[in-house]
Amino acid sequence: MHAAIELPSLRRQKILLILERDGKVMASELSQHFAVSEDTIRRDLAELDSAGLVQRVHGGALPRPKDTGKDFFTRVSETDEVKTRLAQLAAGYVKNGQIVMFDSGSTTLQIARSLPSDIAITAVTASPMIAITLAEYPGIKVILAGGQINPSTLAVSGHETLRLLQGIKADLLFTGVCAIHPEVGISSLHFDEVPVKLAMLDSAAHVVAVTTADKLGAVEPFVVAPCARIHTLITERTVASGNIEDYRELGIEVVQMTAVD
């Protein structure tokens, strides 16, 4: 009797190990693996989801992204060598004369800081902090979208924001990434970010996503768009969850940072 009581908790621990290894779990496969019914597995996944350990999706579960609990000012003020090097790689995609959109986020802010000092572009953003950073470049013309500021992201949203973004055809977009999964797509923690991100995606000829490895294979509550909307993905050499080839199979150019970049 004692072993039977312990079995569900042991099975759930093993499910978490499989999830960490594979980047996703499917109820049907777990049912066969543990020789229990799919209803039993669904109850396991529901318990793990309630505990904040997984993100349930149709047919299974995905990793839940780690939340550092840090506000935006804290994140952007910290020195992050990985983000700095990723941003430097991304900055190489910017060419003189382009119209470039900058989505909100600490990584896109770092890209703005990494541009060559003599670059001459028109920059469009919904982030006041990124706009201020770009305004320091003598050769950059900055267009800042108006709207209501979200205190969590320090970016604007609303009808005025969308109207401006929809009226611009950009050469390049650096899209912010809360989470990205090859099957689920790009997703966000903030509902009001979704239409803004979609408007930027629709307005750009080439979309570059720059992200640390911990956001790959992760899922947030609000889905923005399929991964196929991204043309170039810049990330770390080591992927925390899943297989980087899954993104290449979607037709995405994947650029991984190396030790000498």
Rank of each mutant, 00 (worst) to 15 (best):
L164E: 09
I41R: 12
S188E: 04
A123K: 01
N243H: 08
V36C: 10
L198H: 09
F174C: 00
E6N: 13
S241K: 14
A4M: 10
L162D: 03
E38N: 09
D202S: 11
V76L: 13
I5G: 08
D39M: 11
V124R: 01
F73R: 14
L162P: 10
E160I: 05
T212M: 10
Q148M: 12
D192N: 08
L53D: 06
M200F: 00
H190F: 08
S77P: 04
V76H: 00
L16G: 11
S241F: 15
F191S: 12
D171V: 01
V219C: 08
L19Y: 12
T161G: 02
K95I: 01
F191T: 07
L189Y: 10
F72Q: 11
L233E: 08
E253H: 09
R56L: 06
V196C: 03
L62F: 11
R21C: 08
A218C: 12
H58R: 13
P138T: 07
A155L: 06
I111H: 04
D44M: 08
P151S: 08
I119P: 07
V254F: 14
V82I: 14
G105R: 03
V54P: 02
V224P: 02
I18F: 15
I15D: 13
G167K: 03
A259D: 09
L17H: 15
V254Y: 15
L86C: 01
R43A: 10
H159N: 03
L19G: 05
H2R: 14
T84W: 00
H159W: 14
R21A: 14
E193W: 07
E78T: 08
I234V: 13
R11D: 15
